[in-house]
Design a protein around this nucleic acid. Structure first.
Lengths: 165, 165
DNA sequence: CTGTATCCCGGACGATACTG
DNA sequence: CAGTATCGTCCGGGATACAG
C-alpha cells in the first residue's frame, strides 16, 4: 500500500524508528490516500466573515468578547425589560458583584449600548437604559439564547455520551 | 425639598457628615424623588430567559461560554465551509496554537457540534466536520456576526465619543 | 445609594518540548 | 501528521475596604 500526500509536508524522524511519511501495514485495512487538494468549493455558509482575516474580522471579536463577558448579557436582558437603577440591577442579577456590575455597565455605555443618567439629588439616583443600538443587540442575542434553550438537551446528551467514552 | 425612597434602604453615616437619606440643596434644582416601586410592567423582550434564573438559564451560560471561547467561532466557521483536517484548520486560523486548537475541537466534539473521524493510516489522518447540530449553531452565530459587522462603525463612533469625555 | 481602590486567586492561554 | 505534557504568564473577576 502506498501513501501519497498533498500540501506542505514536513518529514520527521521519530525515536520509535518511524519515518514519516512511510508505508506501514494498516490495521483498519484502510485504503489509499490520494491527493486531497481541497479546491475552494466550500459551502459558503459564513459570508467571508472569518474566512478573510481582515480588519473587520478582528473587530468582530470585540463584539463576541463583549457578549462573552460574564454579566453583559444578563444586564442587557434586564435593561431590555425596563430601565433600571444600579442597585435594582444588582438585586435583579444574583451573583454579580458591585465591581463587575460597574465595569460591565461602563463597557456597555462606552460601546453605545446603554445610557447612564445621573440625577443630581441626594442620595444619588442613576438610571441605566438600553439605547436603540442596544435593543437591536438584545434582539440578536435573544436569538442565540433561544438556540441555546432549544438545544441544551441535545448538548447534554452529547456530553453524557462523550464522557462515557 | 423632601426625598422619599422605595425599596430596602440601608442607612449610612458618612465621615463627611452626610447622613443618607437626607435633605440637601440640589445643584441641578432636581425635583422630588417619589416611590419608584417598579411594578412588573416590563417590555417582555426577553422571553423569560434571564428573567427567571432557573436551571435552564444557568445552562444557557455554558453555550455563551462556548461561543465566547477565543477560537470556537473561527473553528466552526472554517468547518462550516467544508470538513477539514487538523493542520488544515491550524493553517486556516492564524494565531491559534496547537494546544488551543486541540482543546477547542475536543470541547466542540464533546458538545456534539463537531465529529472527529480518525482514519487508521500512516501518517494519521483526522478529519473534523460539523454535525447537523453544529450547523444550526453556525447559522445562529452568523446572525450575531452579521449584527457585529453592521454595527461596528456605530460602536467605534460611540467609543471615540466616550473616550473623548 | 453609587460608586472607587486594592489585593489576590484560579483559570485561560501561549510557548516549548516531546511522542506514536 | 496529530497530538500530549509541562510550565509560565496574564487577566477576569471575587472579596473587602473606603468615599462622596
Amino acid at each position: 500500500m502506498e501513501v501519497t500526500y498533498a500540501g506542505d509536508l514536513h518529514w520527521t524522524y521519530l525515536e520509535s524508528g518511524i519515518f514519516f511519511p512511510c508505508v506501514v501495514s494498516c490495521p483498519g485495512g484502510g485504503g489509499r490516500i490520494v491527493n486531497t487538494s481541497d479546491g475552494d468549493l466550500g459551502r459558503e455558509r459564513v459570508p467571508a466573515l472569518l474566512a478573510a482575516r481582515d480588519d473587520a474580522t478582528c473587530r468582530v471579536r470585540e463584539v463576541l468578547d463583549r457578549v462573552g463577558e460574564k454579566w453583559a448579557i444578563s444586564v442587557i436582558a434586564e435593561l431590555g425589560k425596563e430601565p433600571r437603577r444600579f442597585n435594582e440591577l444588582r438585586r435583579a442579577i444574583p451573583g454579580v458583584s458591585q465591581r463587575m456590575l460597574t465595569a460591565t455597565l461602563r463597557g456597555l455605555e462606552r460601546d453605545g449600548l446603554v445610557t447612564r443618567a445621573v440625577h443630581p439629588v441626594v442620595p444619588p439616583r442613576v438610571e441605566y437604559e438600553l439605547t436603540p443600538l442596544g435593543e437591536t443587540l438584545l434582539d440578536t442575542v435573544s436569538a442565540l439564547l433561544g438556540w441555546a434553550l432549544d438545544h441544551i438537551d441535545d448538548i447534554d446528551k452529547a456530553r453524557i455520551e462523550y464522557d462515557a467514552h
